[in-house]
């Protein structure tokens, strides 16, 4: 472990073979008070949100005001253009007619909320991001194939090289490594020797 002291670790990357194992590990981390950890799985696993102790997505809080802003934008735009700036009589209707504005208000509400949803989702996921340290691990490619991973970031206030390792070992991970951020290195931690 001497070499790992020199560089600052980014995260532990623990590998699991089955969905129950990875769910179980997430629950253990959640119960141990960890918050900065993530699960990487080839497919969505029902119940993972709860197992990781994730709260509801904040996306709605972002989308709703933006959607209302879309409604207001459409209303203001139509009111200004049709009612004030360049009033035109169309179909014998008054220049400022609410019914004719409703479809535009509806469309801009949908458009704004779609943008807010997509870009808000990217922002909350801290995307776009060109590289992530977990990709330093060669084994990590299996996260899109047949393995399940949990990464516990060193930024987590509960993170501790020895204690975190014990938690992950206790969750029966099949492989464990430390991922470093700076030079693309990883270090495999031998399992079952934590006690030694």
């Amino acid at each position: 472990m001497a070499s790992s002291k020199k560089k600052k670790p980014f995260a532990y990357l623990a590998e699991f073979d089955t969905t129950p194992a990875v769910i179980h590990a997430a629950e253990k981390l959640r119960d141990a008070g960890y918050s900065k950890f993530d699960a990487h799985t080839p497919f969505p696993i029902h119940g993972m949100d709860a197992a990781m102790g994730l709260s509801d997505s904040k996306l709605g809080l972002l989308v709703f005001p933006v959607a209302m802003a879309g409604t207001a934008t459409a209303f203001t735009m139509m009111w200004w253009m049709n009612g004030i700036d360049y009033p035109l009589v169309i179909g014998g209707k008054p220049p400022f007619s609410l019914p004719s504005m409703v479809p535009i208000m509806f469309e801009l509400t949908v458009l704004f909320s779609a943008f807010a949803t997509v870009f808000g989702m990217l922002h909350l996921n801290r995307l776009p991001r060109h590289h992530h340290p977990v990709f330093n691990s060669e084994r990590f490619a299996a996260a899109t194939d047949d393995k399940f991973f949990i990464s516990v970031e060193a930024d987590d206030p509960k993170f501790d090289l020895e204690k975190t390792k014990k938690v992950l070992e206790g969750a029966h991970c099949t492989h464990l490594e430390i991922v470093y951020d700076d030079d693309g290195q990883t270090e495999t931690i031998p399992l079952g020797q934590a006690e030694a």
Binding site: G91, G92, K93, P99, S100, V102, P103
Partner: peptide, 12 residues
């Protein structure tokens, strides 16, 4: 409901 209303309102 609005679709029904708006077409009738517009065409009059």
């Amino acid at each position: 409901s609005f679709s029904q209303f708006m077409l009738i309102w517009y065409a009059a």
